[in-house]
Design a protein around this nucleic acid. Structure first.
Length: 508
RNA sequence: GCGGGAGUAGCUCAGCUGGCUAGAGCAUCAGCCUUCCAAGCUGAGGGUCGCCGGUUCGAAUCCGGUUUCCCGCUCCA
């Protein structure tokens, strides 16, 4: 591949040309960072979902699935922290054109002043030796006192301004503190603006009396608020998990890189509830399990790597990403987080309901700890798409566009084609189609030369092509051609179902 | 959101010092050929040149605005 830009462009072009992914509302010039899945794309996407659901829910007797509503009670987001944390005050420097979080600028300023105080303390400690009393020095030294007061003032002004949502005051604070852009040193700032990362809308037809609700920014909370419902109705014992596939929405300031970061996206999540104190064990377990799930697809293992988080989100005590080698480099594909008991505790607090599990073995109740595995469906789609597409040079000097989609995820499993359009071959081919399409998504094609039709199937990743010729009418046999090797073999029509199912089996 | 680049048929692009009914290759469709690995023959469909406005006798072409996409910065539970 020439370079990364060209590569991604090629993938986007191929995806559009063959009906995998279209820009949303394209006839109206499209909508930024929104995409539609076309006929082949929705097949592939559904197959990914099925693969995940099967691995998580069907293959684990202690994991069940739900499908929660996108709308949730507004208090949910207060409890989860999204209402506050998804509200960043941002400010731009007019000269450097850089954007910063206003709260970070203030924090950095505070850190600078604190450094001054510490310098003062170190100096004093040297001077006084063993007799040095830090608390006393802090309480009496005029320079330290003045600096400490500066910090206190700034922090309280910032807090007051944020609480009252007075963004002008935040800007004034930054100007008063003489904070300069770390890059350019410029103090030429724009207004402070708030970006709420959650989409809001009104519930209720009347504007008055309607309440603001949010489109969920993550699917996890739908699981947490249903924790007791599910645990009780499914008679689950800890450790157990609840899985969900669904859409989530984030009003990203900037959303780009094709379907990698969209404002509307789909997550496949599983929250695994465990005994407090056992979370790290299960965290490690799921890290491994999830990586195995990826490896089973047959995509080269070096395309994946773990990225352990050093800086944790407020709710987590351990976190790692599974990163994938996308056309634009290694980027997060899936997250595995030890979320502690943060979410359930928060919901207990805000709802006033007990969200606890009675552990018969320990004979006590507790709020379970949670391990989360969360994978972006659209990202998984892109991972498979970008890994599958290749231009293969053939021995005769020609080339073919090949989509090496893992067989069991392919949109079409088999293409059935008559060698020619005459002599009853189409009829025979359609007979076979009728049988196979009950179990497999198949395509019928009789247009153009047989070689051309093979290439067409290569370009959309169909693993098996079945060709009906004149002999087929006599002996009920057909030619089966493999997408990757291009090898052909003669088989009985009756054996087709088992041959196809053999090709769709997972690598383990 | 800022800066840079781009937008002509489904795709890749040509045309752009303003001037014939806007072209090519591939793709699509119909027919011929009846053929086991694309690119054989005949024909057809498909574009208000991203959109709006301006300059002009005349704009795909010049100017302004706008929108979408790509890249960089920024942001990212």
């Amino acid at each position: 591949m020439a370079n990364q830009d060209e590569n991604l462009k090629y993938i986007i072009g191929h995806a559009k040309e063959y009906g995998f992914v279209f820009p949303s509302s394209e006839i109206y010039d499209g909508l930024s960072a929104a995409y539609d899945y076309g006929p082949l794309g929705s097949e592939l996407k559904n197959n990914i979902k099925q693969y995940w659901w099967k691995a998580m829910v069907q293959m684990n007797e202690n994991i069940v699935g739900i499908d929660a509503s996108i709308f949730m009670h507004p208090t949910t987001w207060k409890a989860s922290g999204h209402t506050d944390a998804f509200n960043d005050p941002l400010i731009d420097n007019k000269d450097s054109k850089k954007r910063y979080r206003a709260d970070v600028l203030v924090e950095e300023w505070v850190a600078k002043i604190e450094a001054k105080i510490n310098k003062e303390l170190t100096k004093a400690a040297k001077r006084f030796g063993d007799a040095f009393n830090e608390a006393e020095f802090r309480a009496t030294n005029p320079r330290v006192l003045a600096n400490q007061e500066k910090i206190n003032n700034a922090e309280s002004r910032f807090k007051t301004a944020m609480d009252a949502e007075k963004l002008d005051d935040v800007r004034q604070l930054i100007i008063d503190l003489e904070i300069a852009d770390p890059v350019s040193g410029s103090k030429n700032w724009t207004d402070v603006r708030q970006f709420n990362l959650m989409f809001s809308t009104e519930m209720g037809a009347m504007t008055d009396g309607a309440s603001t609700i949010y489109l969920r920014p993550e699917t996890a909370q739908g699981i947490f608020v249903n924790f007791l419902n599910v645990q009780k109705t499914s008679r689950l014992k800890i450790p157990f998990g609840i899985a969900q596939i669904g859409k989530a929405f984030r009003n990203e300031i900037i959303a780009r890189q094709f379907i990698f970061r969209m404002r509307e996206f789909e997550q496949m999540e599983m929250q695994f509830f465990v005994r407090p104190g056992e979370e790290i064990k299960w965290y490690e377990y799921w890290k491994e399990e999830r990586m195995k799930w990826h490896w089973a697809l047959g995509i080269p293992q070096e395309k994946y790597k773990f990225h352990d988080h050093l800086k944790m989100a407020h709710y987590a005590n351990a976190a790692a990403d599974i990163e994938f080698d996308f056309p634009f480099g290694f980027k997060e594909l899936e997250g595995i987080h030890s979320r502690t008991d943060f979410d359930l505790k928060q919901h207990e607090k805000h709802s006033g309901k007990k969200l606890q599990y009675f552990d018969p073995e320990l004979n006590e109740s507790y709020v379970p700890f949670v391990i989360e595995t969360s994978i972006g469906l659209d990202r998984m789609f892109l991972a498979i798409l970008s890994n599958s597409i290749q231009n293969e040079e053939l021995e005769d000097g020609s080339s073919r566009v090949l989509m090496r989609i893992p067989n069991f995820l392919a949109p079409y499993k088999a293409a059935i084609m008559p060698l020619t359009k005459k002599d009853g071959l189409p009829e025979k081919a359609r007979e076979i189609l009728k049988i196979l399409q009950q179990d497999y998504n198949c395509q019928y094609d009789e247009k153009d030369s047989i070689g051309k039709r093979y290439r067409r199937q290569d370009a959309i990743g169909t693993p098996v092509s079945i060709t009906v010729d004149h002999d087929s009418l006599e002996d009920n046999s057909v030619t089966v051609r493999d997408r990757d090797t291009m090898q052909q073999e003669r088989v009985a029509i009756a054996d087709l179902p088992s041959i196809i199912s053999g090709k769709l089996r997972l690598k383990n």
